[in-house]
Structures are given as structure tokens and as C-alpha cells.
Design a protein around this nucleic acid. Structure first.
Length: 199
DNA sequence: ATAAAGATCATT
DNA sequence: ATGATCTTTATG
């Protein structure tokens, strides 16, 4: 069943980030269902985290959606090429988000291969945030989409992830964030081959 | 108005 | 290792 609003509005992004492991991200773009089990995430906290676009509650046109109540999509363009998908969490005016970094393909494999311009199934199909969005058909225009709707949503399919099977580490690509770059806010499922490469 | 940097990926 | 590629943001 679909995750409800109270899953997203909890105040602890770190916790939500961990809880998202094992949940299923689904999209139905142009009527085509694609989905994947989330195996890797990163937490971003607006109030205190230099690595977050909304650091110190910085409100811009881009970050505005992060200030909404949890349960909407924050999608932005990275390096001019990649559409990165985040789940907005916490309450209104508290700009926290979780970046989905990798999923394990479940449904719509053919469509995902096509979107990624690949011929046969390989781990790189959905490893890395840019790849996830491309495979699922998520674009910046989906920014602000409610995650309880029919376009993009998350499901709990009762997949159990043990606390001991969650590895945490420093986030990727946030060297500029100084000491905040060291926070262990990247989470992944131990021994899952669908995670993106770098430790 | 202009410039610089960026939560990345694929290729060499 | 390096290039692709273009939005967002900061600065003048």
C-alpha cells in the first residue's frame, strides 16, 4: 500500500532516510508502470546541513518545494544533465529531503532499458541518482508532484530491512560542505548489488 | 548581464 | 581521468 503523509512528515530525516530502504518507488509516466525497491538513500537537512540546497532555510525558486509539508517530490537538474529525485520530508517550513540514489528494478524493465538506452539488464540500469530518475522517467517538471497521487508514489510492500543490514557512510559529491560532508547520512542495504559504486 | 560551480554519468 | 552540458545562484 501507498505510504501515507505521516510517514513523510516525521521530523527526523535520518530516520525517514533509513526507513525508505526496502520501500518501492513507482511511476506511471504516459501510462507505463515502472518501479524499483529503494536500496540507497541520502538525507539532507535544511536547517543545519551545508550540503543541503536549503541550508539555513535558504528559500529560492529552486528550493521552494522543500519547504512544503513532507510527501512531495523535489527534482532538480544537476550538472546540466541529470534530473535528481528527492522525497521532501518534515513539516511545512522545515526543508528536509531524502535523495534516492539507487533502486532494484521490479516492474517495467523493458521500458527502463529503453529510457536508459541500454540493450540488456545490468546493475548500472538504476544505480546512481541520475540513473534512477532516467529509468523511472522522472524529470524536473515533476517537481512538486504529490507522492500520494497516480504519477509518482511510494509503496510499502512489506519488505523487511533489518537494522543490522543498513550501512551508513559519508555522502557523495558534497565535498564543498566542509565538516557536514563527513556526516554519515548516506544509507544503503548491505551486500545489495544494485547500490551505486563508491563506498 | 555575466560568470562560476554543481547532491553525476559514460567513456577513454 | 576527463568531457558533456545547462540551471541556479551570486555578483556587478
Amino acid at each position: 500500500m501507498k505510504l501515507k503523509e505521516d510517514f513523510y512528515t516525521r521530523p527526523d530525516v535520518e530516520q525517514v532516510s533509513k526507513d525508505l530502504l526496502g520501500k518501492v518507488l513507482c511511476t506511471r509516466i504516459n501510462g507505463i508502470l515502472t518501479s524499483g525497491k529503494i536500496v540507497e538513500t541520502e538525507a539532507y537537512c535544511g536547517a543545519t546541513d551545508r550540503a543541503c540546497h536549503a541550508y539555513q532555510h535558504r528559500r529560492t525558486k529552486r528550493t521552494e518545494v522543500m519547504f512544503q509539508k513532507g510527501g512531495v517530490a523535489y527534482v532538480y537538474l544537476c550538472y546540466g544533465i541529470h534530473h535528481l529525485f528527492n522525497v521532501v520530508t518534515n513539516c511545512k517550513d522545515l526543508a528536509d529531503a531524502v535523495l534516492i540514489r539507487a533502486v532494484e528494478p521490479l516492474e517495467g524493465e523493458e521500458e527502463m532499458l529503453q529510457r536508459r538506452n541500454m540493450k540488456k539488464l545490468a546493475y548500472r540500469l538504476t544505480a546512481g541518482p541520475g540513473s534512477v530518475s532516467q529509468a523511472l522517467g522522472i524529470l524536473t517538471r515533476h517537481k512538486g508532484t504529490r507522492l500520494d497521487g497516480e504519477l509518482i508514489w511510494l509503496e510499502d510492500r512489506n519488505i523487511q530491512v533489518q537494522e543490522k543490514d543498513i550501512l551508513s557512510g559519508a555522502r557523495i559529491g558534497v565535498a564543498y560542505a566542509e565538516e557536514d560532508a563527513l556526516l554519515p547520512w548516506r544509507f544503503r542495504i548491505k551486500d545489495n548489488p544494485w547500490c551505486s559504486k563508491p563506498q
